[in-house]
Simulated scan of single mutants.
Amino acid sequence: MNFSGVILSAVLMLLLSVTAQCRKTNCKSECCTFVEGFPARLKELRSSYKEILKFYESNDDLDALIDGTVQHNINGPYGCHVVDEILRFYLNTVLPTAVKKNRAHTKTPIDSIGNIFQSLQRDMLKCRKHFFCYKPFEITSFKDSYEKMAEKGVNKAMEELDLLFMYIEQFLASKRDMH
């Protein structure tokens, strides 16, 4: 994604979050409450991410890992599977590696991100029907790119968490009209 695309996406997300805050929804289901409550979780994610961003930016000199393909797939018909697979990858691979590599400086923010990701994954699983999760998403090429980056892969994956947050936010915002 180029710089103007990032700016446009950021403005769009700002507008969506302002609209979400102004619009009061009377939720009648657990899934509605989950979707409507995501902006608070996103705020926590971004706060934790801000604590570690400079470290990962200074150690990242690689091409993008989270690219337009990920965004396209999240916004596609199987978006919930894309989000689920990427969350699983971060929970099982990226975050544990980041904690091992930089235990002294980043453990608490990474733990916070991991806890929110676990909760998000669990809530999305509960709401599979709400999100129309029917077909699996293949994450192999994403994992292959990460593995080719070797030890620097964790820096790239951590540095791009903001993009992942934005893509998940877009996905959940697209589901707001469904309840």
Rank of each mutant, 00 (worst) to 15 (best):
K152T: 12
S141A: 09
G153Y: 06
G153L: 09
D61F: 05
L95K: 05
F137P: 04
V99Q: 13
I86F: 01
K156V: 09
V6R: 11
E57Y: 10
H179C: 03
I7M: 09
C127F: 06
M1W: 03
F131K: 02
D63R: 01
S174M: 07
V82M: 13
D123P: 03
E138N: 05
M178L: 14
T33G: 01
K126Q: 04
K152Q: 11
P109V: 11
R41D: 13
D162S: 14
Q21G: 10
V99W: 00
E159F: 14
R128W: 04
V70Y: 04
F89C: 08
L91N: 04
Y167W: 12
L45W: 11
V35N: 00
C31D: 06
E30Q: 15
S48F: 00
D63C: 03
M13N: 15
E85V: 04
D84Q: 11
Q21T: 04
T106E: 04
D111H: 14
T97Q: 03
M149N: 09
M1E: 13
R46F: 06
F165C: 10
L65R: 08
I168E: 07
H81N: 15
T33L: 07
K143D: 09
R128I: 05
K50F: 05
N75I: 07
R176T: 11
A20W: 10
E36D: 15
E159C: 13
K107Q: 11
D162M: 08
E44V: 10
C31H: 01
K148D: 11
K135F: 13
E51P: 00
N92Q: 07
D162N: 15
N73R: 12
F142W: 07
A104V: 09
M149W: 02
E169V: 01
Q121T: 01
D111G: 10
F132N: 13
E51F: 07
E57A: 12
R128Y: 07
H105A: 13
L53F: 10
E85A: 15
I139N: 02
S29F: 09
P109I: 14
C32W: 11
A150E: 15
K101L: 12
I113F: 08
R23S: 15
L8E: 15
H72S: 15
H105T: 05
V94A: 08
V99L: 06
P39V: 08
R176Q: 13
T106Q: 13
R46P: 02
S112E: 10
D123T: 02
S145G: 06
S119N: 00
I116R: 10
K152V: 00
T19L: 03
D111R: 02
L95Y: 04
G79N: 05
F117G: 08
E138Q: 12
L125R: 03
V83Y: 03
M1F: 06
F38T: 09
K28P: 00
D162F: 10
